[in-house]
Design a protein around this nucleic acid. Structure first.
Length: 267
DNA sequence: ATGGTCGCGCTGCGA
């Protein structure tokens, strides 16, 4: 049996429904995790997902900003959202499902972008980002006995040299500063998480999941960053069959600035 | 080259 799972920062789920439907019809993931849904739960477009078989829905939204959701063809249990940093932002949701004889805890995160200035004194949004990552260090992939874990989402940090178009030019740019990349690496190490995208495609191959809107020709310039991630507990590593970054989605009509990342497991 | 483009929801804020 197989499991396919996708993560996508959608930058407004309501505006993006035409391309979300196109993606689901073409790729048919079992589970889809969305970030930046930017809508309250009572305005979430639940029906088009349900019509495609995604009848199990865990949504945690807020007006205008943030918002995360898990849309699933597999039953979801123990749905839970955490308020990291205690500021009331909708940036996390988790649920438990079964696949391949395993019970899997799935975490879906939207880490704060952190503003422009990489200085926590001058820029409180950067401090919030660092504090958020600090809390993520407490999340262990083996936190629940007998259960596997998957952590996905827009983590807004490109941790490795080849996760950005120019390591040197981005060292002082928020998303690739040493304090952020070391923080994310430490969260991965402390929680004993596997970076499945890099297990499948090691460095020095460049991997990007985001290209700025502020670029005339995003594809030719190709100044991307790997901000979206798929992590798992170590027991799932041998079951990973493929990772696919759907680069073409950046060129679809009215695109998000992020593209879907898919992971396929075989059991 | 230090700009540029989005989305929300109606004014600037966040990305």
């Amino acid at each position: 049996m197989t499991l396919s799972l996708a993560t996508w920062n959608i930058n407004s789920v309501r505006l993006r429904m035409p391309i979300v439907e196109k993606f689901l019809d073409e790729k048919q993931p079992d589970v889809l995790c969305l970030q930046e849904t930017k809508c309250q739960d009572d305005l979430f477009p639940a029906e088009p997902f349900a019509q495609r078989g995604y009848v199990h829905q865990a949504i945690h939204g807020q007006k205008s900003y943030n918002g995360v959701a898990i849309l699933s063809r597999l039953p979801l249990a123990e749905i839970d959202s955490r308020d990291l940093c205690g500021v009331g932002h909708a940036r996390h949701i988790s649920a438990v499902f079964e696949a391949g004889g395993k019970v899997i805890r799935l975490h879906n995160f939207y880490v704060p972008a952190g503003g422009d200035e990489p200085d926590r004194e001058a820029n409180p949004k950067f401090g919030h980002k660092l504090d958020f990552v600090e809390e993520m260090k407490l999340l262990h992939s083996e936190a629940e006995a007998g259960r596997s874990s998957i952590l996905v989402g827009d983590l807004n940090i490109a941790p490795l040299e080849h996760d950005v178009w120019s390591h040197k030019q981005l060292l002082k740019i928020v998303s690739h500063t040493p304090i952020e990349t070391e923080g994310l690496t430490e969260a991965m190490r402390k929680g004993n998480w596997l970076d499945l995208m890099r297990q499948h495609t090691p460095e020095p191959t460049k991997l990007y999941t985001w290209w700025s809107y502020r670029s005339a020709d995003w594809s030719a310039a190709d100044k991307g960053r790997r901000l979206d991630h798929v992590w798992s507990s170590h027991d799932l590593g041998p079951h990973l069959e493929a990772i696919e970054i759907l680069r073409e989605a950046r060129g679809w009509d009215k695109p998000s600035d992020h593209v879907p990342v898919m992971a396929r497991f075989a059991f």
